[in-house]
Design a protein around this nucleic acid. Structure first.
Lengths: 105, 105
DNA sequence: CATTTAATAAACCAACTAGTTAAGTATTTT
DNA sequence: AAAATACTTAACTAGTTGGTTTATTAAATG
């Protein structure tokens, strides 16, 4: 799905993941989001826009401030895609466990 | 984590996700992986390299062929990161359900 | 009304990405 | 030994990304 392109791409940047993690604590203004980062405010604005385009957050305009909230449902889209592989990684873990048990003998 | 950068980035391309899905059916040679795509073989090789660099697959050289296998444990790394948000998307679903129930009244 | 604050827009840059084609290197097959 | 197969490497291109600075718009405050 094309949606997954923009979601995974948005998640592939540490600054953006940090923004999302900040939003777990609750709503934040754009300027508050920018504060912890060692980069210009327009740069952070761009990151927020990428997250917004991926549907990972919603922006609400209130007066002259913009308030951002998490939209975790888009993360579920990514998570659901990954879930298809779950049986493979548990299986691989089992393989490893079995291997270790065999080696121990 | 920096690891997440390369994992999510590798997953953000449809061709690469299709390669991973192909590998769910089992091991495949590089040339077999390339076949279904309308692009040159070196292009597919590059995609495979990106997946390899992200640790999402392993390559085993056998004679003149390369055989690729899924390494799903790296997907678990991505999945685990997303799992932190799980409570948010179920909560948002509940909010939606509650909203719909309220509207119905 | 003038100033400050919050944020966007525009123009630019360096680095990276996803593709191409052409040439080269191992390894197998005949 | 020659030819075919399975790749890799290299050089190139167009478009995208992540950052910058400067200027602009819009809203709140003195």
């Amino acid at each position: 799905m094309q949606n997954l392109d923009v979601i995974f791409s948005a998640l592939s940047d540490g600054t953006r993941r940090a923004i999302l993690q900040r939003l777990m604590q609750g709503e934040a203004r754009l300027s508050d989001l920018a504060k912890p980062f060692d980069m210009s405010q327009p740069a952070v604005s761009k990151h927020v826009r990428v997250l917004h385009d991926a549907g990972l957050l919603v922006i609400e305009k209130r007066g002259r401030t913009r308030h951002c909230r998490l939209n975790a449902s888009q993360m579920k889209v990514a998570s659901d895609w990954l879930a298809d592989y779950q049986s493979f990684w548990t299986q691989q873990f089992d393989n490893l466990a079995q291997h270790l048990a065999t080696v121990k003998k």
